[in-house]
Amino acid sequence: MFQIHLGTLSSCQYNLYETFHFRKNMKRIISELYVRDNCHPFKASLLIWVQLPLWVFISIALRNLSLAASDSSAVSVAQNLSVGGVLWFPDMTLPDSTWIMPISLGLINLLIVEIVALRRTELSKFQKCVTYMIRGFSVLMVPIAATVPSSMALYWLTSSCVGLGQNLLLRAPNLRTLCRIPKMKSDSDTPFRDLSAAFLAKYFSRK
C-alpha cells in the first residue's frame, strides 16, 4: 500500500512538472509571436486607455457647464445650452424627462456588446464574465443618463452611435480593402448577413 502511494505521488509530481514546463514554453512561444508579428495585446487596448479618461473629462466638463452658477463665462455657456436643444430636449441643462436618450443609449450599448459577442464562436469564462459586466453597466447607464443634464446624455448617445458605426463599418469588405486592412481567415464575405443570421439564431430560434 505504501509503495502504491509513493508511485501515485511521484506521478502527480511528474504531471505538475510537465504542466509547469508546458506553460512556461507556451508563454515563451506567445511572446515570440508578439515580437514577430508586432501585435502585443496592450497595443490593442491602448486606445481604450486614451478614450476612457477623455470620455470622463468631457462628461464632467459638460456637467459643470450645464450646472454653472458662479463663473461668468460658464454661466454664458450654460445659458446657451438652456436654449440650444432641439426636438424633445430644448433645454440641455435639464435631464431628459422623456427617457428617450437614456433608453436609446442603453439599447445601442447592448447592441454593441452583442455584435462583439457574436463574432466569437465560443467565449472563455473570463470573456463571458466581462461580457455580462458590460451588459450590466449598459443597463445601469440608463437611469444614470436620465438624471444627468441632457448635454451629457446627448454626448454619451453620440459616442455610442459612433462606436456602433465603427463596429459595423469595419466589417464591410469594401471598406477593409480600401483601408488596406489584412483579411483574416475568420473574415466573411457577407458579414452583415452572417451577423443577422447569428443574431436571429441566438435570440429568436426555437430550441
Rank of each mutant, 00 (worst) to 15 (best):
S196C: 06
D187E: 09
A198W: 01
S160P: 08
L16P: 01
L123H: 09
K128Q: 02
A153W: 03
P102N: 05
H5D: 15
L94H: 07
M133P: 09
L169W: 08
E122S: 08
P95N: 06
R180S: 06
R180V: 06
G165L: 03
T121V: 03
L105V: 06
I48K: 15
S196E: 12
I4L: 04
L87H: 03
A117S: 10
L6W: 11
K207V: 09
M101H: 05
T19A: 14
H21M: 13
C161G: 04
H40G: 02
A117F: 07
R180W: 06
G84L: 04
L65T: 03
F199D: 02
L47H: 10
M26T: 12
V130D: 00
A197Q: 08
S160V: 07
K24R: 11
A74R: 10
Y34G: 04
T98P: 00
M184D: 13
G165Y: 03
F22N: 04
F42S: 14
F204H: 09
S124W: 01
V75C: 12
S188M: 01
R63S: 07
K27Q: 14
N15A: 15
M101R: 06
D194H: 11
V77N: 09
S66Q: 02
L52A: 08
Y14T: 12
I115T: 02
A201Y: 09
Y14R: 15
E32I: 12
S150W: 05
I115D: 07
H5Q: 15
F89M: 10
A145W: 02
A153M: 01
V77Y: 15
G163W: 09
S82A: 15
D96V: 00
T147S: 02
L65K: 05
I108Y: 00
E18L: 14
K183M: 01
S59N: 11
I4A: 02
P149R: 04
S82W: 06
A172L: 00
R193D: 05
N25F: 11
S10R: 12
P149E: 10
L9E: 11
A78S: 14
P95W: 07
F137P: 00
T8A: 14
G7E: 10
A78R: 12
K207I: 05
D91M: 00
N25R: 11
L94Q: 13
S97E: 13
V130G: 00
S160H: 02
A198N: 02
S188R: 06
W156L: 05
V162E: 08
Y203T: 13
G85S: 11
V75R: 13
P90S: 07
P149K: 03
E18Q: 13
S11H: 09
S72D: 10
S72L: 10
L107P: 08
